[in-house]
Design a protein around this nucleic acid. Structure first.
Lengths: 235, 235
DNA sequence: CCGTACTGAATGAATGTTCAACAAATGATG
DNA sequence: CATCATTTGTTGAACATTCATTCAGTACGG
């Protein structure tokens, strides 16, 4: 039984969090919170700590303090620090994955709309903010030397990449372009990651709006028939 | 005299290292290596450790072992672990900076050639290899929470970015394009960083050649008059 | 009053730093 | 050139600190 709880998907846990009846009075402090709510709370505190202090300075004590709980609590809900971090990464991965899938769903059947929706989704406030980006970056820095992280650490996974390739292929077909879809998809998704990197580095010259603008500029030059540019600056 | 040795720049130190007379017998082990050579040796060992074990697992002991020296040696040549890491980052930053400046110099006066040279330089073996990329990524993961790292951690600095913008502006002028140079430069440099990220994550589907191909594809679609595409796949 | 969530002090391992001793080079002295 | 002195590079053990983990005990809910 404990095993099934441990393996519960985060989506279910989030539903539990949103359940108004239980949530109202038993918010955080008391001993009343359900196991999953507490785990979510600890994961959020972990993201906070990663964002504020970086991977190497993130300690169990800081996470516990951030959640307003005692020191030993993490080893109770998660077996170890490593398990906590993996759960945190999995949580962010699931969240990102659900986000772009949802955006894709809402975009209709037109490939051009779908691609645009995917690109825009990358810069939504809900996932593209200093806190989350910093946490992502913290994991990236450790991913290469930790096999456990590797699969989860690039939010944009193989499925995502395949969809990008397919969309590029569809646009090539309908627009008569001459590029190689696979190559173009790599360029595009790499740019999105690069823009994320810029945003999380926090140099003030790059904002979410600027980044989105750059991404759209890419779409316009790569697929001019589908994303026509606005009027030239000097008509 | 001794002081001139102490203050020797790394370039001179490397020359000294290459000096066959002294080099032959006094390569590494003995007590003969000059201060700068030893520091270089420790910095290289640090890069090794960062690449192999990641930032959080890089220890003074591992660096010392990697250099084949004793435990206390790092605190002698560098004051502390933090100073060692900053020196390592500075070293990589200087190396990267010198590399693209050199590439730019050799490219001649034509903006199109210059931009192409900068992009190609990013994927040279000398700086774009698993070891260096992993070390970069390790620093990126800590940069946001460490003010000391921030200035150095994005290899592509403000000067680099300005040059990119200027080149994009020049190409716009001569090619009659309609984009905003600043935005296009951001898209381009972000893509380069994103490709680096892909390469260092080490998913086997992205190689240095593939990445360079994607970057060139970007140039072709953004500046079609300057970088014409090869013949369409199906003529 | 039983079980379960939770606490926080104790523990032990890992690791950065210090330092006294040592060795190799360099310089001084005869 | 030989011998000694001084400076400089190097070592490795000792030390102090930080931190993940453990666990005996506590208190709340049912």
């Amino acid at each position: 039984m404990l095993e099934t709880i441990t393996r519960m998907k985060t989506a279910d846990a989030r539903e539990a969090l949103l359940e108004p009846a239980r949530k109202a009075e038993a918010e955080k402090r008391g001993r009343k919170a359900s196991k999953e709510v507490r785990q979510l709370q600890l994961i959020e505190a972990t993201i906070d700590s990663l964002a504020k202090r970086g991977y190497s300075e993130t300690t169990m004590a800081d996470v516990a303090d951030g959640a307003g709980l005692s020191r030993g609590i993490v080893n109770f809900h998660f077996e170890s620090k490593e398990k906590l971090l993996i759960a945190t990464l999995q949580y962010m991965y699931d969240e990102y994955s659900a986000h772009w899938r949802s955006a894709l769903q809402k975009a209709g059947d037109e490939p051009a709309d779908q691609l645009h929706a995917l690109v825009s989704a990358d810069f939504d406030r809900s996932i593209c903010n200093k806190r989350k980006l910093a946490a992502w970056c913290a994991f990236w820095g450790e991913a290469k030397s930790r096999p456990t992280y590797q699969a989860l650490s690039s939010a944009r996974d193989a499925v995502y990449q395949t969809i990008f390739i397919d969309l590029c292929a569809a646009l090539k077909q309908s627009g008569g372009y001459v590029y190689e879809p696979q190559v173009m998809a790599l360029a595009l998704s790499a740019m999105l990651e690069g823009l994320w990197l810029r945003l999380m580095m926090g140099t003030e010259d790059t904002t979410r709006e600027t980044a989105l603008q750059a991404a759209n500029e890419f779409l316009s030059v790569a697929f001019p028939k589908h994303y026509p540019l606005k009027a030239p600056a000097k008509p």
